[in-house]
Design a protein around this nucleic acid. Sequence first.
DNA 1: GCAAAAATTGCGACAAATTTGCAATAATGT
DNA 2: ACATTATTGCAAATTTGTCGCAATTTTTGC
Lengths: 145, 145
Amino acid sequence: MPDPVDQLKIVLKQHSQSLTAARQTVFSALQNKEPQTMHEVVFACQGQVNRASIYRVISLFERLGIVQRLQIGWKYKLELSGAFHHHHHHMTCTQCSVTVQIPEDTHLEQHLRDAAASQSFVMQGHQLEIQGLCARCAAAPSMPL
Amino acid sequence: MPDPVDQLKIVLKQHSQSLTAARQTVFSALQNKEPQTMHEVVFACQGQVNRASIYRVISLFERLGIVQRLQIGWKYKLELSGAFHHHHHHMTCTQCSVTVQIPEDTHLEQHLRDAAASQSFVMQGHQLEIQGLCARCAAAPSMPL
DNA sequence: GCAAAAATTGCGACAAATTTGCAATAATGT
DNA sequence: ACATTATTGCAAATTTGTCGCAATTTTTGC
């Protein structure tokens, strides 16, 4: 059972990048958590990593496929990508912003991979969000705001 | 053949909202166009609607399911959602950022609607982005950064 | 190990994007 | 048309994201 930090180190090494303290801190902040806003990540790294550096680290991680940026509701959020964290899809209520996970679906995955291949793309990852109304809001008579 | 603006009016009325000049202008700016950045929408409404109001209108439209926010590559873009504009999905190359459309797929649509229903959600829209490598970049020897 | 070279980080200043308070306008119901 | 309520414009405040550069840390070649 591989230590995630070792995995991170390997991926970085593959791209001639080193595992620095800042990178490890940001990585830890993202580990085993629900997707977080940039603000939350900054907060989690408070006092340990400077804001500008966090942006730089996240940007690097994105280019290396270590983190993914997800549009969830109104703001984007960040999460570790497939190799580090089993990612799932989300459904967001357009009214109250409540978010639930969509059950995993291997058919869908294969389906998307085929669609990508039909355009000569090699799929690395994907992002799916369903927008709609949760049961509560669908039942509510009108819109409060 | 319904006038899209009439449709807009109906949706607004359903939520006890009125069709104001600002809302119609923003709606028109989004009609029959590729997804646009907020900046592009602001530009299109220049002199007609104040920037702060555009944000407020877009926010309302999102809550009403009239527009959707799409993450395309690094930035988000806005487009009218399903009822107003037949939307398609995108695939973005993580290396060179080239974007292509994914062929429409009715199966997928129904599939997602079912998934939403399984969590007692009423689907209003969805967003799918596939990240990967285009043929050109997949063939390229290494990553510059 | 150690010193030089290269890459990364912190910091403060910027620039861009988004939100908010409030007075002025426009829309709605009677 | 009038009073009431919602929407808009404007300017200021906040929040987000970037940049240049000096200080540190990491890597490389002895």
